[in-house]
Every structure is written in C-alpha cells, then in structure tokens.
C-alpha cells in the first residue's frame, strides 16, 4: 500500500495532557476527548507542522527512541496514522 502523507492538527487546536499512563488529547475543533497511549502523542509531536508519511515519522522517531528495525517501525507508524486519521487528529494531505 502506498505510504500516505498526513498533516497533524495545528498545536493550538489541541490540548494535550498526560494523566498517569494515559494521555488525554482534547481537540478544540471537534470538542472530542481522545484517550490515547504511547506512541500516539509522540507521533503527533514528531510530525510538527509538516506533511509526513509513515517513513518520515518513523525516521524522526528513531532519532529519539529505539524502535527496532526500520521496516517494522514504519509499518507500526502507518497503522497508528490511520487510527489518528479516524480520530481526526491527522488529515490526509
């Protein structure tokens, strides 16, 4: 499957609050509260304001975390990006 490019929600749209093992993400646009765990917040942070595909996000995350082999990391990030898109937290470019 093609590695689709997404853009993360602008930072002022989100209120991100760590709460114990969970992270709450309140989206001001939808007024929805998303309760997520790692690596969702890390993926959003790594994307910044750029259009990113899974390969780009995995590369950025690898610089900060140990993600194991590159192919596995990219596949994992790709799955998470689809979930983030369903929540509306990233949008296909």
């Amino acid at each position: 499957m093609a590695d689709r490019t997404y853009r993360a929600a602008p930072p002022d749209a989100l209120c991100v609050e760590p709460l114990g093992d969970l992270t709450l993400i309140f989206d001001r646009r939808s007024t929805q509260t998303h309760i997520v765990v790692s690596p969702m917040p890390e993926i959003l942070a790594a994307m910044g304001a750029d259009g990113c595909n899974a390969a780009a996000v995995a590369a950025r995350l690898a610089a900060a975390f140990d993600l194991g082999d590159a192919d596995g990391a990219q596949a994992l990030v790709a799955e998470r990006l689809v979930e983030l898109a369903e929540l509306g937290l990233v949008a296909p470019v």
């Binding site: 709460l19 114990g20 093992d21 969970l22 709450l24 007024t31 509260t33 309760i35």
Partner: peptide
C-alpha cells in the same frame, strides 16, 4: 485509583461532559 481511570470513569458518570 489512578488519575486516568478516575477520569474515564467520571466521563462515563457524567451526563453533560460531552
């Protein structure tokens, strides 16, 4: 009870949270 679990339970116990 952890803060996360308490938060989730109270969203479920609230009729006007959303």
């Amino acid at each position: 009870m952890g803060e996360g679990e308490a938060f989730v339970r109270l969203t479920e116990a609230s009729t006007n949270y959303v």
